[in-house]
Design a protein around this nucleic acid. Structure first.
Length: 221
DNA sequence: GACCAGGCACATC
DNA sequence: GATGTGCATGGT
């Protein structure tokens, strides 16, 4: 059974790495901003951008909604793709202010399906970003899929090669206990594993999943 | 200097 | 629906 394999993987990862304390962010808004800034970008660079926003005392929906997009772009420059990401942050804020009075708390009333669908209408918020916001900022039972998740699932033959985002999300989401704390920790552990053992040029020596069935010659993407 | 990093939108077939 | 491209910084 898939659920048994997923549970075994989780136990091996947690036993080896321990709790990852995700999401690394002080406030719900900081989590949302981080989710957008980390798109295809190393987290260390995102931290620099967020530090800039904090230093300028701009890390609130009101402040970011009101500052000039070019000023915002300059502040988040270390995160890379800074022009497009500044627009994406603005798109989120425009939606938040137009439809929800600029208050994240007003989003709490949304059912998860509706919430996800609405996030996906914002240009610049795709599936992974939406799901990260839902899980890590709003404690919704949505499993976040990223490049590491896909690599690891492929490497351990949990899913057919070529599976898409929704199939991967379904794999984890439907075969685990419905607990946002578990989804939170599991995804964080997969990223930890991916960074250390399941990336180009990384070896499998001392990988916590070394003894599980796997293949080395997978395509990275 | 090449390669990579917790994606996404858009064009094109 | 699948595939290709632009977007950009900072670490290895």
């Amino acid at each position: 059974m898939i659920s048994k394999q997923l549970t075994e993987i989780y136990q091996l990862l947690f036993g080896s790495f321990g709790p990852q304390h995700w999401w690394p962010g002080q406030t719900r808004f900081e989590i949302v901003v981080g989710a957008i800034l980390t798109q295809n970008t190393n987290w260390a660079n995102v931290e620099k951008a967020i530090a800039n926003l904090k230093s300028a005392h701009l890390l609130t929906p009101e402040k970011l909604h009101n500052i000039d997009v070019s000023k915002l772009a300059e502040l988040i420059r270390p995160a890379g793709y800074y022009n497009i990401k500044a627009k994406r942050l603005k798109n989120f804020l425009t939606w938040l202010f137009n439809d929800y009075a600029g208050r994240l708390a007003n989003l709490e009333n949304l059912g998860t399906d509706r919430f996800r669908a609405e996030l996906l209408t914002v240009k610049g918020i795709g599936r992974e970003t939406a799901d990260s916001i839902l899980l890590y900022a709003f404690d919704r039972e949505i499993f976040v899929v990223d490049a590491y998740t896909a690599r690891i699932a492929a490497r351990h033959k949990l899913i057919e090669p070529g599976a898409g985002y929704e199939q991967l999300r379904e794999l984890f989401q439907a075969n685990l206990p419905q607990d946002y704390r578990l989804f939170n920790e599991y995804h964080a552990l997969l990223v930890r594993l991916g960074k250390e053992f399941c990336r180009p040029k990384a070896g499998c020596a001392d990988c916590p999943l070394e003894k599980l069935p796997h293949t080395l010659d997978i395509e990275y993407f």
